[in-house]
Amino acid sequence: MKDNKNKSKSMGQILAKIVLWLVAGGAVGFITSFLIMSVKKDTTDVMHFFYNGYLQYSFGYQAGFFVVLGAVAFIYYRKAGAAIRQGTYEEEDKANDYQNVSISANEINMVIQFLLFGLAMDMKNPNMLACVILFVIFCTGIIIMEAVLIKQIKKIHPLKNGDVGDTNFNKRWMDSCDEAERMIIYKASYSTFQVMKSMLPIMEAVALLGKLMFGTGNFPIILICILWGVHTGVYCFGSMKLEKEGIE
């Protein structure tokens, strides 16, 4: 029996599939637009209600997320430290897992702090100054936590180079990784590229709906297209450079 899995599709089949996806996307967009328009006023009122409620307690949300995610990062940092002190290979593997959880919580904390800070920057916010001060304090704490985690990782992997704050930290850290670690980074980076390649067009469509239905303006559309262009351009030019110069 012939294996047809690797058989190349004809141009007609490819075009038919593209048209099918375009029609399906248009149908989904039309239905979504119709549903949003039908509840536009109610949706706008609900959004304003929740946003005004957020502004009233914005500094509390900032502090709450920082405390919860910061506690997760710190607890797993301590667990990693306890595992490292055991001095066995099995415990070091556990320490690596704990450190990954701690780093993830710390990174998510930074993203959420930027989100909440951006939402809080509104002249209607009576606590805007407090939000600015908390944002600076919390981001400083997150960066310090990252530096502490890097120091702890270097206890297990003393050949690792670089410290948070170095201008060339990423390059020094990457250069000190072994082949297995680099392969993990490469695969994770490519997965990120593929996810963003799918997400950016969806975000652009959402920004367009926001402009048409909620008056969000052109800036979100322009910003997403800039990110889309940078995302694609960096990948394409990086690929061409590596093909020309080779991988070190």
Rank of each mutant, 00 (worst) to 15 (best):
A105R: 02
P158A: 13
F135D: 10
I108K: 10
Y89A: 10
I142M: 00
F49M: 08
M128K: 07
A83C: 09
Q56F: 05
L129A: 11
D45I: 08
M128L: 11
N96R: 14
T43G: 00
Y77H: 08
V164M: 14
G118Q: 05
I84P: 01
M121V: 15
T140K: 01
P126K: 08
Y77P: 01
V72D: 05
M128F: 09
Q62A: 02
F49G: 11
L129C: 03
F66C: 04
K40D: 14
Y51C: 03
V148E: 05
Q86I: 11
F114W: 10
H48C: 03
A73T: 15
K160A: 04
M123V: 12
E92S: 12
N125E: 12
L115H: 04
L134M: 06
K160R: 11
I143E: 04
F74H: 08
M121S: 02
A147Q: 07
N106P: 01
T43E: 02
K124I: 01
L119A: 12
V39S: 12
T88K: 10
A71I: 13
A63W: 06
G162K: 13
K155R: 15
F50A: 02
T43H: 01
I108C: 07
M123R: 11
N106T: 12
M128T: 13
K40C: 01
A80S: 14
F135T: 14
I142N: 07
L129S: 13
I133H: 00
I137F: 12
F114I: 09
I84W: 02
V148Q: 07
H157N: 15
A105Q: 01
P158L: 08
A147S: 13
I153T: 12
Y98A: 12
A63N: 04
V68I: 15
N161K: 12
T140V: 11
K79C: 07
F117Y: 15
M123H: 09
V72K: 05
G64I: 03
L116G: 06
G60H: 03
F59I: 08
T44L: 14
L55Y: 02
A71D: 04
C139I: 15
G64Y: 07
A82S: 07
S104M: 12
V68F: 13
M123N: 12
Y76D: 06
C139S: 03
I137N: 00
Q152Y: 11
E91R: 10
K41N: 13
V67Y: 09
H157T: 12
P158G: 11
P126R: 08
I75W: 03
L149S: 05
F59A: 15
I142F: 00
N106H: 05
Q99S: 07
M121L: 11
Y76A: 01
H48M: 13
S102C: 03
G60V: 05
D97L: 08
Y54R: 04
G141K: 01
Y77A: 00
E90M: 15
A73H: 11
G162F: 11
N106E: 11
Y57T: 02
M145S: 15
T140L: 04
I75P: 00
A147R: 14
A73S: 15
V136N: 00
N100L: 10
S102V: 05
F74T: 14
S58Q: 06
A63S: 06
A83W: 03
V136A: 10
V132I: 14
K79N: 11
G70E: 03
A130F: 07
Q86P: 00
I142W: 00
A147W: 13
G162T: 14
F50E: 08
A80M: 08
L55D: 09
S58Y: 06
M47L: 13
F114G: 06
Y98M: 12
E146T: 07
